[in-house]
Write a protein that binds this DNA or RNA. Structure first.
Lengths: 212, 212
DNA sequence: TGTACATCAGTGAACGCGCGTTCACTGATGTAC
DNA sequence: TGTACATCAGTGAACGCGCGTTCACTGATGTAC
């Protein structure tokens, strides 16, 4: 869970008690329903059962809320990816396969997070905290790529960073084209998971893996 | 050019004469500036120098305008891709490389079209004309994949459709992560073009290409 | 344990704004005769 | 070539709406003594 503290089921009384978390949850719900653009500060307040002025106690404006959602998204994403990768156990191939599936599962089950992270157009340069969180999530992919590359003969070994970027691009490409539940559903002869798995497999073979 | 007819440089008089085209151009400009969500019907009208009621003569609502932009985007995309592919001349590799570069160039130089096509969330199922245009653009990739696959031994040859989807996912992944001018610019050790070229190269090697 | 007080997190009313949409209208264009 | 008329593509004023934002306020909570 991203909203850790205590989950009050029934916020009551004058003080909400957990408004910041409630607003973030409202934003997630609204983004999931109508896309990253289709959510307003006022509506999030209404969702949380609070006056339209209340959110200003916790966020300067809509963008700050959005950035906060993206931040938590990256944190959760890092966790999910790291758990899937599991330090490359039992071997890099199996782990990479899990990683790819986890990537797609995240994009599918957390479309709001995914939107906020990659499609909301928040400039990462401005927000160092956000940028760092994104980098940490990417570091998981990068670690995986390093472990894979280490299995190649050092002569002509491709840079691990490049391999990580390739894997990211494949996963992101498939996730955004085919991996969302409802919208833009194009008829496919196979699931997004199978498609990504096959793609990564061909790619790895192209790298020379598995190597003797 | 997508807006073909006659490009009046100075729309004047009571009748605009070319309002439909002007509105689409305005939408492109606004989408490019502020993303697919950051454009309004009223603002497009203002941009075209026309009263806010005028656009209703040409589009039922904002969504219809957006769909029209996406439609033209796919048409132009198909043209651009087909020209780059050039029927696979002089050979499928060279042509595929051109295709990838053209894909990225389109995403970069026509961000508004690209957004409308892939990020505006227009349900393609509802709009058959739009869907068809998208299919025709994809058919170029598919044709390329077929030519590539034909070079493989028929035993164990992967389905061309799958290969086409893989190529699309790679190109789209790189375009949306790294291939836009201003926003979300992450420091990369190489250009988006080089990154995609390398990725496709590894992938093709994984397919067993070039084959003897 | 009780009291005074500072601080905090909410209220609710108000505002200006731009958007989407409608309406009766009007100027321009094209066509029939 | 001219006239009458239908049609088309725009105007501009008006409306209701929801948003973002501010303001003085107030109820609840925590702390010092």
């Amino acid at each position: 869970m991203s909203w850790s503290k205590d989950e009050r089921t029934e916020p009551r009384g004058y003080h909400h008690g957990n408004l910041k978390e409630a607003l973030i949850r409202a934003a997630l719900e609204l983004i999931a329903q109508k896309g990253p653009a289709g959510f307003t500060f006022a509506e999030a307040a209404r969702w949380a059962g609070v006056s339209p002025a209340a959110p200003y106690r916790h966020f300067r404006d809509r963008d700050e809320l959005m950035a906060n959602v993206a931040l938590r998204g990256f944190q959760k994403f890092e966790l999910v990816l790291a758990r899937a990768w599991d330090e490359g156990r039992p071997d890099a191939f199996t782990a990479l396969d899990r990683l790819g599936k986890a990537y797609l599962e995240f994009a599918r089950t957390e479309p709001a997070f995914y939107s906020a992270m990659f499609e909301a157009g928040i400039p990462p340069a401005i927000n160092p905290e956000l940028r760092e969180a994104g980098d940490r999530a990417f570091a998981v992919l990068r670690g995986g790529a390093e472990k894979l590359c280490a299995q190649l003969p050092s002569k002509g070994r491709p840079p691990a960073l490049m391999v990580a970027l390739h894997i990211w691009a494949m996963a992101h490409g498939i996730a955004s084209l085919f991996g969302r539940g409802d919208e833009a559903k194009r008829a496919l002869p196979m699931s997004a998971e199978e498609l990504l798995e096959a793609e990564v497999l061909v790619y790895l073979r192209g790298l020379g893996l598995p190597a003797g």
